[in-house]
Design a protein around this nucleic acid. Structure first.
Length: 213
DNA sequence: CTCCCGATAT
DNA sequence: ATATCAGGAG
C-alpha cells in the first residue's frame, strides 16, 4: 500500500472511532493481564462473561492464589482451553509475587517470561496498560494487514515488523485497536462486509463482497 | 508441527 | 457440521 494510502487508511478509521480501546473488561493491570491470557482463541464477549464474576472477587495475584486452580477453573470453564489457561494463570500469579513484587512488569522481556504470555499478549499489555506503541498481531490484525495489503507477512512477527515500518504518527498508539476492531466488525474472516467498509477503495482484496447479501 | 477446547455464527 | 474466536507451549 502506498504511503499516502496508509495515512488515509488510518485517518478514516480514526475519524469514525477517535479513541479506540480494548473491549476486554478489567479494573487494574493485573486483571488486564489475566483477561488477555484468557482471551487466546476465544471471543472478548465470552471472556468478559466469565471475568465479570471472577474479577469481583479476584483483584490481585494474592486473591488468585487464594482462589486456587480448581476454583479458577470453575469460573473459566465456559472459555476454551480452560485447563492450560488456569494452570498458566496460577503459575503467572506466583511468579509476579516471587519476582516482581506482585506487580505487572512493563518490559517485554519480563512479560514474555510469564507462563501463558507470548509476544502478542505482552504487546497488548504494554499498549493498554503502559501506553507503548506496540502492534499486537493477533488473528484479526494478521488477516486485515494481509488482506488489505497494509502489511503483508507470512507470520505474525513478520507482519508486526512491517507495521512498525509503515504505520505513521499520529496513529501508532491506536493502530492496533483500529485494526482489531475493523477486523472484528467489518473485515471479518468469514463474511467481510466490504459494501460498508470505510477503506475499501484503498484495499487490495480481490474478491470484495460489494453487495449486501 | 500438534495439542489445548467451549461458545457462537454460518 | 464446521469455521472461528485478541495464542502459547511442547
Amino acid at each position: 500500500m502506498k504511503k499516502d494510502d496508509v495515512f488515509e487508511f488510518f485517518r478514516r478509521l480514526a475519524e469514525e472511532n477517535p479513541s479506540p480501546e480494548t473491549e476486554l473488561e478489567f479494573g487494574n493491570h493485573y486483571q488486564l493481564l489475566v483477561a488477555v491470557v484468557l482471551s487466546a482463541q476465544a471471543t472478548d464477549v465470552g471472556v468478559n462473561k466469565a471475568t465479570r464474576k471472577l474479577f469481583a472477587e479476584v483483584k490481585s495475584p494474592q486473591d488468585m492464589l487464594e482462589l486456587g486452580e480448581e476454583g479458577l477453573k470453575e469460573h473459566i470453564k465456559s472459555i476454551g482451553l480452560f485447563n492450560s489457561k488456569a494452570s498458566n494463570v496460577i503459575a503467572l500469579s506466583e511468579m509476579l509475587l516471587a519476582e516482581h513484587g506482585g506487580k505487572v512488569p512493563e518490559d517485554r522481556d519480563a512479560l514474555v517470561e510469564l507462563p501463558g504470555v507470548g509476544r502478542k499478549t505482552a504487546n497488548v499489555v504494554m499498549n493498554c496498560a503502559f501506553g507503548a506503541e506496540t502492534f499486537a498481531v493477533d488473528t484479526h490484525i494478521f488477516r486485515v494487514s494481509n488482506r488489505t495489503g497494509l502489511a503483508k507477512g507470512k507470520t505474525p512477527l513478520a507482519v508486526e515488523k512491517k507495521l512498525e515500518k509503515v504505520v505513521p504518527q499520529p496513529f501508532r498508539l491506536g493502530a492496533h485497536h483500529w485494526l482489531i476492531l475493523h477486523g472484528r466488525y467489518v473485515c471479518k474472516a468469514r463474511k467481510p462486509e466490504c459494501w460498508r467498509c470505510q477503506v475499501a477503495e484503498l484495499c487490495s482484496y480481490k474478491s470484495k463482497n460489494l453487495s449486501e447479501d
